[in-house]
Design a protein around this nucleic acid. Structure first.
Length: 228
DNA sequence: CACCAGGCAAGTA
DNA sequence: TACTTGCATGGT
């Protein structure tokens, strides 16, 4: 029985996860109490440091606004003022409203009802909401709906393309398919893996890489070029 | 001061 | 399809 190329890559993708997990430990994502809080957080952290999104969430909690009914009733301008620390606050207020309106129009405001939908159906529904792109939709599927969906983000593209495990021009779908093709479809694995990639990105593999702090240097080596 | 963060949509060619 | 730009606060 010969070892196929794809089997070797299966092992490599899992090895990378194991190294990251051993080095950084479990990340316990998503850091939120309720499903709705995960969804709001996913929107507020778009292209924004989590620490800033967290401040916005804290403001909402102060007025007990992490509630579908409350968010349905609140004026969009009032909401925008409360989530100011998360940046892009006018746009994000509309996006949160778009989701909440969708939830009421399609599921009578019930997340429980929304989560009855199958993965593919739910994903398409979420993507139809203005302001929810693939990463946000998949984050909701993975961390709020507990579905085994791999979330791809800017760090994933940067890190894995630097090491030629994906191509720089691969689409979101291409990258997601690659990870999901190589790994067991497991919600915990996918959840931790994505979180660990973000942790690696924040610590060692930003736009300017710091390979001396990279826990993967022994299996991946240094990327040949330090370009984006 | 410059740079970047757990994106997305709309506009242009 | 493949770029480019606006959106904005807060940390390093």
């Amino acid at each position: 029985m010969i070892t196929k190329e794809s089997d070797k890559e299966d092992k490599l993708f899992l090895e990378i996860f194991k190294h990251l997990y051993k080095f950084y430990g479990p990340q316990y994502w998503w850091p939120a109490k309720t499903k709705l809080e995960v969804i709001i957080g996913a929107i507020l952290t778009q292209s924004t440091a989590w620490s800033n999104a967290e401040k916005a969430i804290k403001n909402l909690k102060k007025y007990n606004l992490i509630s579908a009914d409350k968010l349905y009733k609140i004026k969009v301008d009032k909401l925008a003022q409360l989530i100011k620390p998360s940046g892009y606050y006018n746009i994000k207020a509309v996006r949160v409203k778009n989701f909440i309106n969708f939830l009421f129009n399609q599921y009578q405001g019930s997340l429980h009802k929304m989560f009855r939908d199958k993965d593919g159906v739910l994903r398409d529904s979420l993507l139809s909401i203005k302001g929810l792109g693939q990463e946000t939709a998949d984050s909701i599927l993975l961390y709020a709906a507990s579905r085994p969906i791999f979330v791809v983000d800017a760090y994933t593209k940067r890190i894995f393309s630097r090491h030629h495990l994906i191509n720089t021009n691969d689409s979101y779908q291409d990258i997601q398919s690659k990870f999901m093709g190589h790994l067991k479809h497991d919600q915990y694995l996918f959840g931790e893996y994505h979180a660990l990639i973000v942790e690696l990105g924040k610590n060692a593999c930003r736009k300017k890489p710091n390979c001396d702090r990279c826990p993967l240097i022994n299996i991946l080596g240094r990327p040949d070029a330090a370009n984006t």
